[in-house]
């Protein structure tokens, strides 16, 4: 729970498609002015949750209240409170950034001088004021993403829903977007931020809910979540030919709490990572695994997810 006044509250939220539960009975609340993260792998139910918050799809059951307005009974009031940044670049490629923003501003009731100043401010905020009159189709992927955010904040929403806003862009644009999100939050905008990038959520969010298979499997501050793994260090082994059998063998090793196969090797949790390295190396070499690198890091959300689900966020 949060100490700030809840501005978004979801209770008993379900969304079913036939026999499949895309969202499986979740509860959460977001405090006013909070930067709240929904972390989970692709298919965890984050986008479905965001879509229900934005009144785009109706929940199978449960309630959503935004700023005192129920999504089902007062959708227009909820929509006026919200800004949304969809996962895709939801813009018209043959129109300029300024034309796109002017259109979206009008959809939220902005007119005349207030519309023009809102467009200018939004473009200034995302660092694209000088290219306002270029067609979107001529922008790089990162610049399109930034205009996509500008379209969501034009009308100064009290709550901004951002669905994976940094997918598929270069590090420089990602940093710019993360900085923009921080500035918006500093200005008092409540942000609900979904991502499967653990580092982003960890760096940005005050509180995080971790989702998997439609359920929230843990929530709290990053510190609180890290404590769930008991302060375990993460040992990342980049190795050729590591298998599930190697991971199972390592789990039996003294000083190793968890072991799992990752994309490029193995990922281990240990109470004292540095001390466990020697036995890890011996065990893997004895099993014929060729180690290319070994790193030990402090506990993070990735280790929390691994601890709770037995898999990595990218699985």
């Amino acid at each position: 729970m949060t100490a700030a006044r809840p501005i978004v509250e979801a209770r008993g939220l379900w969304k079913r498609y036939g026999d499949v539960a895309a969202v499986d009975g979740i509860d959460f609340s977001v405090g006013e002015g909070e930067l709240f993260g929904l972390l989970g792998p692709n298919g965890a139910g984050k986008t479905t949750t965001i879509s229900m918050l934005a009144c785009l799809i109706a929940p199978t059951s449960g309630t959503i209240v935004v700023d005192g307005h129920d999504c089902l009974t007062e959708p227009m009031a909820v929509k006026r409170t919200l800004g949304i940044v969809p996962q895709e670049v939801a813009l018209y490629p043959t129109l300029s950034a300024a034309q796109n923003l002017a259109f979206w501003g009008r959809m939220y009731g902005l007119r005349g001088a207030s519309l023009r100043s809102a467009v200018d401010e939004a473009l200034e905020l995302v660092g694209l004021a000088e290219r306002a009159h270029e067609r979107i189709e001529r922008y790089s992927g990162g610049m399109k993403r930034r205009v996509n955010i500008a379209a969501g904040i034009l009308h100064r929403p009290r709550v901004l829903l951002m669905d994976e806003p940094t997918v598929g862009i270069d590090p420089q644009s990602r940093n710019h977007i993360l900085e923009t999100v921080r500035r918006l939050n500093d200005d008092g905008v409540t942000v609900v931020y979904t991502s499967h990038y653990m580092e982003e959520v960890e760096a940005l969010c005050d509180r995080v809910a971790i989702m998997d298979h439609g359920k929230i499997i843990a929530s709290g501050t990053v510190r609180e979540l890290s404590d769930l793994v008991g302060g375990l260090d993460v040992i990342t082994v980049v190795a050729d030919g590591a298998s599930e059998a190697d991971a199972a063998a390592l789990k039996g090793c003294e000083g190793i709490a968890e072991a799992d196969v990752s994309d490029d090797g193995l990922r281990l949790l240990a109470p004292r990572g540095g001390s466990a390295l020697a036995s890890v190396v011996r065990m893997l070499e004895g099993r014929g695994v060729r180690i290319r690198s070994l790193t030990v890091t402090e506990p993070d959300l990735e280790s929390v997810f691994l601890h709770l689900t037995g898999k990595t966020l990218r699985d």
């Binding site: 934005a54 785009l56 919200l82 949304i84 969809p86 939801a90 813009l91 939220y108 009731g109 379209a151």
Partner: peptide, 9 residues
Amino acid sequence: TFMRMIAAP
């Protein structure tokens, strides 16, 4: 963009 329109009031 259609989704974004539906999300608008």
